[in-house]
Amino acid sequence: MAKQQPTLTELTELLFQQVVYLQETMKQNIAQQTELSNKINSIEVKVNLSELRNLETKNRERLQNDFTAFQFKLVDSKEELLKVYRAISNKKMFYLIALNIFLLFTSGVSMYIAIDKSIDSSKHEKLIDDNKKADLELNLLNQFFKENPKNYEVYKKWRTETEVKTNKP
């Protein structure tokens, strides 16, 4: 069974009912708001200035007392912390100074050894040149002995005799 769709007149009638209900609700809300507004306007506030000033002075005194007590506690804890800090600080400073002196001494000795053991660039270049010359002479000597094997035999014999005389292997 299918549901029957409401007709346009039924929908219109339902809409009018809702509008009427909304208007009544709005009237009630406006009436309540005006009533509350009138009650708020009718409230009279009477302030007793002397009582208010007494409360103010009591609160100021209590706040001042609390602040003074807090300040004393803060000063006491600050003094204790300063004592501890100074004791720790002196020990740390001693260790840091000793460590710095040791590191400075070590770096100075290292620099002295490095400078003392270093070689000048001109000496290095001279050694490289001498090495090249020695290699060239050795190559020439090897080439000479390859071309003249008799001379090599004479050299070998002479070298053995010299080593025997000087007792060098």
Rank of each mutant, 00 (worst) to 15 (best):
S77F: 07
D130G: 07
T68G: 03
L36F: 05
F67S: 12
R159P: 00
S110Y: 01
Q28D: 10
Q4T: 11
L82M: 05
N29R: 11
K83C: 04
S107Y: 09
N142R: 04
K39S: 02
Q32N: 06
E44D: 00
E51Y: 06
R86A: 07
F72W: 07
N59Y: 14
N100E: 01
T162Q: 13
R62G: 11
A134D: 03
K126C: 05
R60L: 11
N54H: 13
L63D: 10
V19C: 02
L11A: 04
K165C: 07
S121M: 03
N131V: 08
V75C: 06
N151K: 05
W158H: 13
I128L: 01
I101G: 06
R62V: 12
V47T: 04
W158S: 12
F102G: 13
E153R: 08
V154T: 06
S42Y: 02
I88L: 10
T34L: 06
Q4C: 06
A69S: 14
K92T: 12
K27D: 09
V75W: 05
R60A: 08
R53N: 15
L136F: 13
R86Y: 10
L36S: 06
A69Q: 15
K165Y: 09
G108E: 11
K156H: 10
N142P: 02
Q5G: 09
Q5N: 15
Y112W: 14
N29C: 11
M26S: 12
G108A: 05
K117W: 02
F94I: 12
S110C: 01
K46H: 05
N48A: 04
N41E: 01
H124E: 11
